[in-house]
Computed example of a mutant assay.
Amino acid sequence: MIDTDKILETGIKAAFESGRILRFYLGNLAEINKKGETDLVTKADIESEKIITETIRAIYPNHSILAEEGGLTTNDTSSGQSNRWIIDPLDGTTNFAHQLPLFCCSIAFQHENEIITGIVFNPVTNELFTAVKNGGAYLNGAKIKVSGKNDLKESLLVTGFPYDTNGIIDPIVKRLSNCLKAAQGIRRLGSAALDLCYIACGRFDGFWEQKLKPWDTAAGYLIASEAGGLVTDFANKPFQTEMNELLATNGLIHSQMISMMRI
């Protein structure tokens, strides 16, 4: 039996520890490295991941951890049960490197292939988004819900662009064009986890992006879903952690957004 209260408490503690590290390094980076042509990694990413992992391991030494920088560490010896933490220590590294306050750490807990806890923390705004499966979604302890917009032309959308656009630039531009013509407006913040949380609290009505990873989406997916949102791929298939394209809406404009994704 999983103690979700303890899982949530551990995840929040890890997120706050991460926030302390991120605030320390914000504007104080000695160097910025690349792990791809445009994909950045900093000491803040590494140190944040280290403190999150250590905080979790202190309570759950046998759980597996899938983290953006460290990959998958499998220590699960709990009688065949699958318990996995999915971590993005700094979602929005490019923003962080440019001292834009749109970044966060994202921590999800997955039991038997189901995400049951999600935590996203922006240490600059001190906004803590949390959700437990079937328990609703919260921002700093206050329950949140998605917007009530049901018309795409009155909806504010958000999107993101992958670091590697090889072979998909045309569909990216086509979908962007479709949405620009149909919606009230579009923003691009640079953090998929925050985009999903902003769907959850009604700041945005729809979000789409391609080439995402589990650590980008796992926590935000649960938070958006528990706030009443709908999360699928572009073909309207239910969310899975390994899917690399994602559409999240308030549910009311989902079918309209699906039509925008068709190219």
Results as ranks from 00 to 15, higher is better:
Leu139Ala: 06
Asn244Ala: 15
Leu252Tyr: 06
Thr241Tyr: 09
Leu139Tyr: 04
Glu54Asp: 10
Ile144Met: 00
Arg187Pro: 01
Leu189Phe: 13
Leu157His: 00
Ile116Arg: 04
Thr53Met: 08
Cys179Phe: 07
Glu226Thr: 05
Thr232Ile: 10
Phe24Met: 08
Ile172Trp: 02
Glu209Met: 12
Leu90Met: 03
Ile32Asp: 02
Ile115Val: 15
Thr165Val: 10
Glu54Leu: 05
Val124Met: 15
Val41Glu: 02
Asn236Gln: 12
Trp85Phe: 14
Thr93Ala: 08
Pro171Lys: 09
Asn113Gln: 11
Leu252Gln: 01
Lys237Tyr: 09
Tyr163Glu: 07
Gly135Gln: 07
Thr232Lys: 06
Cys197His: 01
Lys213Ala: 07
Leu180Ala: 14
Ile199His: 03
Ser48Asn: 01
Ile21Lys: 05
Leu128Phe: 13
Arg262Asp: 13
Leu40His: 08
Lys43Ser: 13
Ile56Trp: 04
Ser48Gly: 13
Met243Lys: 11
Gly136Asp: 01
Thr77Val: 14
Gln99Trp: 12
Leu230Gln: 01
Phe207Arg: 07
Gln81Thr: 14
Lys6Pro: 00
Ala142Pro: 08
Val173Pro: 01
Cys104Lys: 07
Ala108Leu: 08
Lys50Leu: 14
Met260Thr: 00
Ala227Val: 06
His63Lys: 08
Ile51Gln: 06
Pro61Ile: 03
Val231Thr: 07
Asp164Thr: 07
Asn178Lys: 05
